[in-house]
Design a binder for these strands. Structure first.
Length: 562
RNA sequence: GGCCCCAUCGUCCAGAGGCCUAGGACGCCAGGUUCUCAUCCUGGUAACUCCGGUUCGAAUCCGGAUGGGGUCACCA
């Protein structure tokens, strides 16, 4: 064991350029001026080029918690792994957060701009800060340099394996450089050997307890491994950076995935050694997917629903995904939503203690259900803008129609929308071209209605009469009832039941029923068997277009009748 | 394998010892409303992993087993 003065020399030797002390940094990054109950949270991803839906989930909860307590939600980029770093990674993260409306107000607010008094918010720019604490730990005998090569480490593991050891890692007699003398260290340095800085973990094992906000009471064995704090390239490991950054940035609540549970003892140990207060932790369970009999974490390789990009591509309305996520975390969200159908989700009072501890399986059907509902409540104008934004990126041809006929398009999206039970046919924006393409004359002209025409029950002769009569009596001022009444009359005259009930009562006394006749109109106008309300649809299409399409259909029926 | 987390309908959650012959939502099935469809309405389907213990009483507390997940890196 080195003496106190040797430790001081060693610290100086290792970090000659570091002059600041932890106390200096403490003063530089004082506690935030926030109400007592304010919650400060963060999202701290690595710029690996894609964002997992779990990241949106964590950000959503973190942001909600912060905003509902008048706290702060910030974004820190953890770029300490040079190997996994990807160009444009930070941009992708910020774009994803903005897209899903969970963008931070501090830290990286855009790819170029860092905002806030607790930066830098990029870990590679904080090397000097980590060095301050590293030096302090060395000087206090809490950390030491380790010159072991990868090969030596590998050999360690193999020997431990051969010995059938239960506890494998760098500790005890396996921690070969734990007790190097100052001279030995100097010699290693003189040879230009690289080193990592390791924590000098207490060797006696004991139980530690901690309360996690989502998991409740937790019990672990304390950490006894001399884990790496600073890598040989001078960058910190996650563990060291987490403890220092979140303290200096004055994060009050650490929200992260449950994969961190097992390194929690190390983090707690660091807080204790550095004599800084520990934050509140909340470890979320993963979002999973069933595969055969087992369950696995949603993975970007195998599951499109894992990456935010796929939601954007399909054109999910972000709030729909958010509400689905809230529903997964539950905390009574679905009950609240039912009781408050018109409030924005942000008003839902989120209780972190109610977050589920079990792996939630992703349920596409439920997402779709929620999405239909959320989209149905949107204004037509908003739907138009969202579909347009989606189409510009993923369906340029369709975007052209939206841009060429903006008012007409809004009219289309307005069909059966402003009513007590709005239409719920749109799940994603990518549904729209197929659902409503026929409204645009260019697309209608290109479409083939034959398949639909073939399925009609009504005879071509009767269809011709009904369609002609409809054109003759066309009055744009007609109410839905008046309009429909006219058609019922014609149908009756042709020998079709005016409603389904009377048809069902005596099916043999009719050629068919009103639905069979109206189907001819539907196909004539849209080439489809299923569409929104015909009367509203005609109102939007306008007299000219309607008449033109009806005549087109009459032509078809005439050819057919011959 | 060691350590850790978790365990209620197919899925997501309610349930913090008697209110539970276990409730809601999604799904699924049946019926109904509507000119079609998407809806909407009504009904139905279906679960406390197992074994011990504590207790007058357990889905709820304790122990064990089983199962699922995580983690054992100079990745986060």
């Amino acid at each position: 064991m080195l003496t106190q003065s040797e430790l001081r020399d060693l610290a100086e030797l290792l970090y000659p350029d570091t002059t600041e002390t932890p106390a200096d940094l403490e003063a530089k990054y004082p506690p935030r001026d926030l109400p007592e109950s304010a919650i400060v949270t963060r999202f701290a991803p690595s710029p690996t080029g894609y964002v997992h839906i779990g990241g949106i989930y964590a950000s959503l909860i973190s942001k909600l918690l912060a905003e509902q307590s008048d706290g702060v939600f910030f974004l820190r980029i953890e770029d300490t792994d040079q190997a996994r770093k990807v160009a444009g990674g930070t941009e992708a993260i910020i774009a994803a957060l903005q897209n899903f409306q969970v963008a931070p107000t501090e830290g990286f607010v855009s790819a170029e701009k860092q905002q806030g008094d607790y930066g830098p918010y990029l870990q590679s720019e904080r090397i000097k800060i980590y060095a301050v604490f590293a030096k302090w730990m060395v000087a206090h005998g809490l950390a030491y340099p380790c010159f072991c090569s990868r090969e030596e480490l590998e050999q360690n593991v193999q020997e431990q394996e051969a010995a059938g050891l239960l506890k494998k890692g760098y500790y005890g007699k396996w921690a070969k450089h734990r007790d190097l003398s100052l001279d030995e260290i100097k010699q290693q340095l003189a040879q230009g050997n690289e080193f990592v800085l390791r924590i000098r973990a207490p060797q006696e094992s004991r139980k530690i307890r901690i309360k996690d906000l989502v998991r409740g009471k937790l019990e672990f064995e304390n950490n006894v491994f001399d884990m790496v704090l600073i890598k040989s390239n001078g960058l910190p490991t996650y563990h060291f950076a987490h403890v220092i950054d979140d303290h200096l940035m004055r994060t009050t609540h650490i929200s992260r995935g449950e994969e961190w549970l097992s390194s929690l003892p190390l983090h707690l140990q660091l807080f204790e050694m550095l004599e800084i207060p520990q934050p509140t932790y909340m470890h979320f369970s993963h979002i999973g997917k069933k595969e055969g009999d087992s369950v696995r974490k949603l993975s970007k390789r195998q599951d499109p629903e894992a990456t935010v990009g796929s939601y954007v591509e399909q054109g999910y309305y972000p709030v729909a995904v958010l509400e689905y996520l809230l529903n997964l975390a539950n905390s009574n969200f679905s009950d609240w939503r039912r009781n408050n159908p018109d409030k924005p989700y942000t008003e839902f009072l989120f209780d972190p203690r109610k977050i589920g501890k079990t792996i939630a399986l992703f349920d596409l059907k439920k997402l779709e259900h929620i999405s239909r509902d959320v989209v149905s409540k949107l204004k037509a104008e908003d739907v138009y803008q969202a579909v347009l934004a989606w189409a510009r990126q993923f369906s340029p041809a369709f975007a052209t129609y939206l841009e060429t006929y903006p008012e007409y398009s809004v009219g289309i999206f307005n069909i059966e929308r402003n009513q007590p039970q709005p239409r719920k046919d749109i799940v994603t924006w990518s549904d729209v071209p197929e659902l409503f393409g026929y409204f645009y004359d260019e697309l209608f002209a290109k479409s083939d209605g034959t398949a639909a025409y073939e399925k009609l029950i009504v005879s071509p002769e009767d269809a011709i009469v009904a369609l002609r009569k409809s054109i003759d009596t066309y009055d744009p001022a007609d109410s839905q009832e008046a309009w429909f009444e006219k058609h019922q009359l014609v149908a009756e005259q042709l020998g079709y039941a005016r409603d389904l009930k009377s048809f069902k009562a005596e099916p043999d006394s009719f050629k068919g029923h009103i639905g069979h006749v109206m189907a001819a109109f539907r196909v004539a106008l849209t080439h489809q068997l299923n569409t929104p309300d015909l009367h509203q649809l005609m109102q939007v299409m306008g007299r000219e277009r309607v008449v033109e399409r009806l005549w087109g259909a009459i032509g078809y029926f005439e050819a057919k009748a011959e």
